[in-house]
């Protein structure tokens, strides 16, 4: 498992990361005010068209969406039960449109580009001497980079314990996870220092 980003030369890849993130934020806020399922469906189809234009493989996109689908389905069922089936349809269309939009930005924007946006956003605070914007951006970038690896690490520990006949519990999983994460953090810090 890696990052969502894939290198490419589509117009979506070439669009400035700040513009994409701003549009995603505006779409996120704007869609909350739309309560017509037909408009929401059009938005979803529009985002799907953009995904297709980005050069992403739809099969891969579906794999990403599938992992969150159970949560969306629970939300849709709850809304259908608590409100109306039409309301549930709106919720489903809205969430899928936003999820796809966020995925589209993640797939066409590298971590380095996102870091540049963060550095730009933090520039006023950097100039005031309140934060070191480059350091904050690096922490952000490293976090995004390492989340998938921590998942793999968790699975490795789980498999190693299962092989020894141990059942998963927070203590037996948590301690090796913590130790390995600290060790890894130290190794990465050394490597970053060496690349100064």
């Amino acid at each position: 498992m890696g990052s969502f980003y894939f290198p490419g030369d589509s117009w979506l890849h070439r669009t400035a990361a700040g513009v994409k993130l701003l549009l995603l934020m505006l779409a996120g806020a704007g869609l909350m005010w739309v309560h017509d399922w037909r408009i929401l469906l059009l938005v979803l189809l529009g985002v799907l068209l953009l995904v297709q234009q980005s050069g992403a493989r739809l099969q891969q996109v579906w794999l990403y969406l599938k992992t969150l689908s159970w949560l969306v389905i629970i939300l849709i069922l709850y809304t259908a039960f608590a409100q109306t089936p039409l309301g549930a349809l709106e919720v489903g269309l809205r969430i899928y449109a936003l999820l796809l939009g966020a995925l589209l930005v993640s797939m066409t924007t590298s971590i380095a580009q996102m870091m540049e946006v963060l550095i730009w956003l933090l520039r006023p605070f950097h100039q005031l001497g309140w934060v070191n914007s480059e350091r904050v951006a690096l922490v952000f970038g490293l976090t995004l980079r390492l989340i998938p690896e921590l998942t793999v690490q968790w699975q490795d520990i789980r498999e190693a314990q299962a092989a020894r006949g141990l059942k998963a519990n927070p203590f037996t999983m948590g301690v090796p996870m913590l130790l390995r994460t600290l060790r890894r953090a130290q190794d990465i810090a050394d490597a970053l220092d060496a690349r100064q």
Partner: peptide, 18 residues
């Protein structure tokens, strides 16, 4: 220039060029 034993610790970003 320091090349570490485990390249995974040395490679910070997910794409080679990046």
């Amino acid at each position: 220039g320091f090349v570490f034993q485990n390249p995974d610790n040395q490679i910070v970003f997910p794409i080679v060029s990046e």
